[in-house]
Nucleic acid binder design. Structure first.
Lengths: 254, 254
DNA sequence: CGATAATTTGAATTAACTCAACTGTTGTGG
DNA sequence: CCACAACAGTTGAGTTAATTCAAATTATCG
């Protein structure tokens, strides 16, 4: 493996997890450097995909997990009538496809919201490696468990919150996720449409639009189309102090 | 290990996963019999817990996963104000505590809805064993992944369904889970209150009550307090043909 | 048996939805 | 490079599904 060429090629480029800024959010977290190297050797990096392209769709055979490296991805299902139901948004460092381990096939679409690079992790190899590296096995279990917790928080949000609280929670989640990735937590661009946000939060797109307007009127946000500036983070947090379960954490992610 | 006493004692009773009717729904599924035996040796069986007793609470240190053997458990969070938010119901063969792997502490309450026996799986031992038994590692990943899928279905249900569809979906999920466990899929007792069901489905308890009445009037159900008879399974299924995503599966469980 | 809790039913309220119209943005081809 | 089509977002008005509040009824348990 150490013999592999170091010539840069689009297909077979050597991925350097060790140098990746997302490593602490990702699978390598907590691993010894020689183990990180073994992990690197199974990672495939493909060409970035363009906005609108699918990474996988429902029914596709499950081969790999994917980690977003740059860009953003939405996962969603579709009704026979053609309506989309957004399941989640995935930012750099976040892992996709965990729901497919179960029955070896994907259950939803994964579509790039913008030009997006992903690291591909062939699952069989990953699983095999995990038996040899206990720390990797543990990290995989942790990532799955984090997804379970995040989704449980989402369920709680949908069950017990008003439209206002849902959007506040969504914006705070984004803010925190950007912060952890070294981006501004108060000034960012939304990769998704109002419709996507509405679908994700169980709201009509008109409701989302009205709430953005209201938040702006209240001085909480400045919104210009996809561009969001959080002007009063504390006020935003205040909006969901009430209905929040004691031990919940907001950030759904890595 | 074969030397272990066969004397029955309350504390140290030898658990026979191999003979357990739930084995195909549980961790042993797919394992070689000698591996099942190694698994059995780390399983602890404690005294059954009584209705209302807690298995764990938020903040508790995470030591073990639990599998319901008989009875039923609900998991829930609590707001500072004291309102319960039900996260899920767990029937025999279903696993509890997966959300706690993430940060080594439980994030919710787990309370027995009736007299309940659980198998306790000390997580460190389980993880250690999983590095030695690839099939066990795989099964653990599968169980986590199933939980992720089930929760994603729940999110979809809450986002896109009416009260009627939610209750229909809930009843069908119970029906299917009972069927798999060898119980009647059309005649069963609810272990939880109307309030619990409402909290789980994001509905007011009055709405749940009214829907039970309506379903009964429509000849779909016969309801007598906790006792439910499904008279027209097809009709019930019909209620959620519409808003259901293409590839969703209804059963949240094992 | 009596008290407390769970459930049912009714009536009024409301948060969010749907429908509809309009505005602004983006991308495309003549 | 502009015109136009297609799309995304905003705003308004009326509707509705589910809620809240209230009261009556029915279990459950010591």
């Amino acid at each position: 493996m150490g013999e592999k060429s170091k010539v840069v090629s689009i297909d077979g480029i050597k991925v350097a997890c060790a140098n990746c800024s997302l490593a602490t959010l990702c699978l390598p977290y907590g691993l010894e450097s020689q183990d990180v190297e073994r992990l690197e050797n199974i990672v495939k990096r493909n060409k970035p995909i363009q906005r609108g392209q699918l990474l996988y769709g429902p029914g596709d055979h499950f081969r790999s997990l994917y980690v977003v490296k740059t860009g953003a991805v939405k996962t969603f299902t579709q009704t026979p009538a053609g309506d989309e139901h957004v399941i989640g948004f995935h930012l750099p460092g976040e892992i996709l496809g965990l729901d497919a381990i179960q029955d070896n096939q994907h259950g939803c679409f994964a579509k790039a919201l913008e030009t997006t690079a992903v690291c591909e992790l062939p699952f069989e190899k990953l699983e095999h490696l995990a038996t040899a590296i206990p720390g990797l096995q543990h990290q995989m279990l942790r990532l799955l468990s984090r997804e379970v917790s995040a989704e449980a928080n989402m369920i709680s949000l949908l069950n017990n919150s008003t439209a206002e609280e849902r959007l506040a929670s969504f914006l705070l989640s984004l803010s925190e996720r950007f912060r952890r990735r070294g981006f501004s937590p108060t000034d960012f661009f939304l990769a998704m449409s109002r419709q996507d946000i509405g679908s994700y939060l169980g709201l009509a797109l008109e409701t989302v639009s009205r709430l953005f307007t209201r938040f702006q009127e209240q001085g909480i946000l400045e919104v210009d189309r996809k561009h969001v500036k959080i002007k009063d983070l504390e006020h935003l947090k205040q909006l969901l102090r009430h209905h929040t379960p004691c031990h919940a954490s907001l950030n759904r992610s890595s």
